[in-house]
């Protein structure tokens, strides 16, 4: 694959590239808009694939290795597609001492996935978060965008079962 540096032409006819283009234009295609642009790509496409990274590198004139280096430095960015459902388990201190390790074990025993992994059928992604800031609700998780608190291992797995029907 060859990257055209300085080109702002989207890599495909997918109309979602317009959103990415607009984000870069807002920042005047300045190289320092890299992280902001990657956020937009992830919001739009769900993850950062190689095509997108090359496009952003070219449009913002940031070296390829630097783009890849930034994308992998920050754990918020996904370089692989996520499952249809996402369970974000908080591993902050309050959640940890209130029993998160047992919840993670239960999920692993039921679905065979550890944080950062997706079930082989692509249905559920398990993600761990440093702290959701919902310490009052410990142990807490975000399940498909909804914060749920005061979880037990059984309840967590039961909630995830609703996704596998």
């Amino acid at each position: 694959m060859w990257t055209e540096f300085g080109s702002t032409t989207p890599p495909s006819s997918d109309t979602r590239w317009r959103i990415v283009g607009a984000a870069m234009r807002k920042h005047g295609y300045r190289p320092n808009a890299l992280i902001e642009t990657l956020h937009t790509v992830q919001e739009t496409f769900g993850y950062l694939d190689e095509q997108a990274l090359r496009f952003v590198a070219g449009a913002l004139r940031v070296p390829l290795s630097q783009v890849y280096g930034v994308a992998t430095f920050y754990h918020f960015f996904n370089l692989k597609p996520q499952g249809r459902h996402t369970c974000v388990i908080c591993t902050g201190t309050a959640c940890y001492i209130k029993g998160v390790p047992a919840i993670l074990t239960a999920i692993e025993e039921t679905y065979g996935i550890k944080p950062g992994e997706t079930t082989s059928d692509g249905n559920i992604s398990l993600v761990s978060a440093r702290c959701l800031g919902s310490c009052g609700l410990a142990p807490a998780a975000v399940m498909d965008g909804d914060v749920v608190g005061k979880l037990t291992p059984l309840e967590t797995v039961n909630r995830m079962r609703r996704w596998t029907k």
Partner: peptide, 11 residues
């Protein structure tokens, strides 16, 4: 706000 167990700034 990165400390796990801190959510003052968020609030």
């Amino acid at each position: 706000e990165g400390d796990p167990g801190a959510f003052m700034d968020r609030s």
